[in-house]
Design a protein around this nucleic acid. Sequence first.
DNA 1: GCTTGATCTGGAGCTGGCTCCAGGATGCAG
DNA 2: CTGCATCCTGGAGCCAGCTCCAGATCAAGC
Lengths: 155, 155
Amino acid sequence: MTQRPLTIGRLAKAAEVNVETIRYYQRVGLIVEPLKSLEGFRVYSSEVINRIRFIKRAQKLGFSLQDIAHLLESGEGHCNDVREQAEVKLKQIEVQIKDLQSIRKTLKNLISECNTGGESECCPIVQSLTENSARTSTKKGAGANRQDFTSATKY
Amino acid sequence: MTQRPLTIGRLAKAAEVNVETIRYYQRVGLIVEPLKSLEGFRVYSSEVINRIRFIKRAQKLGFSLQDIAHLLESGEGHCNDVREQAEVKLKQIEVQIKDLQSIRKTLKNLISECNTGGESECCPIVQSLTENSARTSTKKGAGANRQDFTSATKY
DNA sequence: GCTTGATCTGGAGCTGGCTCCAGGATGCAG
DNA sequence: CTGCATCCTGGAGCCAGCTCCAGATCAAGC
C-alpha cells in the first residue's frame, strides 16, 4: 500500500491539532519547515507527529512554548539539562499552588462571614475589598498568609 | 490648606496605579469619566481611589475585570449576589489548584525517575513526553526506547 | 518669559498562543 | 469536467490587561 504524502492537513489530523497551529509552530521555529513537493506542498516526516505530541504534552505540564523549545534543544544534549528545567518548572508550579491556596482561604473566609452576617445591607465582601487594609479573615491569625497572597499578583 | 484638584496623575499616585491604567478602566467602563475642569482636565472624586483599590484587591483574588464589573454592580444591590460570585470563583480556584497538584505530581515522578535513571543517555522526561500514552506516574519502564527520544527532538 | 512636567485625544503595541481570512493554485471524487 | 477540499503566502485579528506614543495644550516653578 502506497502511503499518501503527509501533507499539513493529514499531519494536523494525526497529531490532533489545527493546521494553523502547525503553521504557527513553523513560524516560531518549533518545527522545521520540510521540503516541498513539486506542487509546492510541504511534505512532513512522520516523526513530526511525535514532536507535536511532545509539545502538547509539555504544555499540559505547564511549560510555555519557549520552555519547550529549550527542552527540545536539551533533549539532544544531556538528561541533566532537562531535569533541571523540570525542577525549575516544578518550583514555579509549587509557588502557584501556594498562591492559589492562600486566595482560596481568603475567599472562604469572606464567604463564611457573608453567611453569618445576617441580613446586613452592607456586604462584608464588598466592604473588605474596599477597606484600606485588606483583611483575609475575621478569625484570628488572618495576617499570616498576607504575603503569599500578594505574591499571587503581578502589577 | 486648599486641596489641589484630584487630577488623573494625583489619582494614580493615590491609588498606586499607572495613569494609563486609569484611562484604560475608563475606556472599559470600570470607572465613570468625571466632569472636566475648564481647562479640559478630568477632576475625580476621592471615592474613585477606593474604587480602584477595590478593583486591584479583587484582581488579587483571581477575579477578572469583567468579574469585577459584575461585583461592582452587585455591590450596589444585595449581598447574596456578591456571595454567589465569590462562591463561583472559589470553585474555579479549587479546580485550578487540583490541576496544578496533578501537574506537580507528574513532574515530581518524572524528576525522580530521572534521578534514579543512572547515566542513561535516554532522558526519561523526554521519553515520557514523546510516548503515545502519557504516564503520570510509574517507576518501572524508564529504560527503553531511544527511538521515541530522537523522534521528538530531531525535526 | 521660559522650561519642565502634567494633561489631553486617539490610536498603536505588547505578551502568548493561536485562529482566521483573502485570493490564488492544486488534488481528488463523482 | 465540475466542484469542492486542500494547499499556498502573508497578513490581520483575538483575548486580557495594560502600556506607550505623537502632537497639542496648559499649569506651575524659577
